[in-house]
Amino acid sequence: MAKIKIKISNLYKVFGDNPKAAMEHVRNGATKQSLLDDHRHVLGLRDINIDIPEKKIKVVMGLSGSGKSTLIRHINRLIEPTEGQVIVDGEDVLAMSQEELREFRRHKSSMVFQKFALLPHRTVAQNAAYGLTIQGIAEGEAAERAQRWIDRVGLGGFENHFPAQLSGGMQQRVGLARALATDAEILLMDEAFSALDPLIRTDMQDILLDLQEELHKTIVFITHDLDEALRIGDQIAILRDGESIQQGDPQDIILRPADDYISDFIKDINRGRVIEVRSVMAKAARASGPKLPMDTALEDALQTLASVGKDTGTVVDHDGKTIGKIDINAAITAMARPDRGTSQPRYK
């Protein structure tokens, strides 16, 4: 298990005039609705416990009003919690003084926003260098360091444009370059691609995954889009009404939904593309049939099996060692929607 970079524990957020008093009701079991109806306070987050592993992408997913944007703003304390802890590298962000917090925001974390939030009066180059100028680095050096990221996100040649002259996708590339330029270890992405067209969004996801290959940042990615969550998340946490209802890797979420809400959520997912053979295989030291790397998607595995006319395949790990076998029927069962009369697939 990777090292935990950010540890969020027992985090509560109540919005309203007197959140401390309202916390009493929350502890006594008030729901979001009853808190609003009876006490005129909004429950933003309830008892959130999330560990974010170092150098991984953790996706926090939920529909609007689920508290996901509130949650991410607690990590760099753009929002003050009502109760709880946010520990980053062993240091409690919530206990920091204003000075320490500024240092934290300048050097340790950076953020990408849904609506880009670029400075309209600054050029692409100046925007990308923004975090560096805030750190107090001279314009010249900041521009030089930011240039690398402008090129990296594919905006070379647009340095002197203003944000208003760029398309949404290009503006968000500026947002990404600005966040990367500070070399912060933590990247907070608040629905960063949600405002973009589907095609551009996929593009941006590719850019992000590509960058992550070489940068290995700790990324917290907020989204309401399950496909996006499954595509880029190493781990996913699902939020509803301010509560975390399931956490796990994408395979877990698809194969073992914690409740009906999540089952409902994932029912339209292309299971064959998300579920990997490792989740469906039976453990075995030896097996027959074509070799399939463990993270092959089921639909690709089926195609391979069908093309060679075999009923079983050999699942191998990254080193090519056999770790299990996959049966064509098990694969088909796993791909079928569980709510269409098939029982839950058995695995491992």
């Binding site: 925001r105 400075l119 805030i134 907070l188």
Partner: peptide, 27 residues
């Protein structure tokens, strides 16, 4: 002034002066 741009300034650790002269007044 756009709250989101101000939030971005905060998120990158801008202090009061940097917020005022870098974001609020220009906008």
């Amino acid at each position: 002034v756009d709250k989101e741009v101000l939030e971005a300034a905060d998120a990158f650790g801008a202090d009061y002066r940097q917020r005022l002269f870098g974001v609020q007044i220009p906008l």
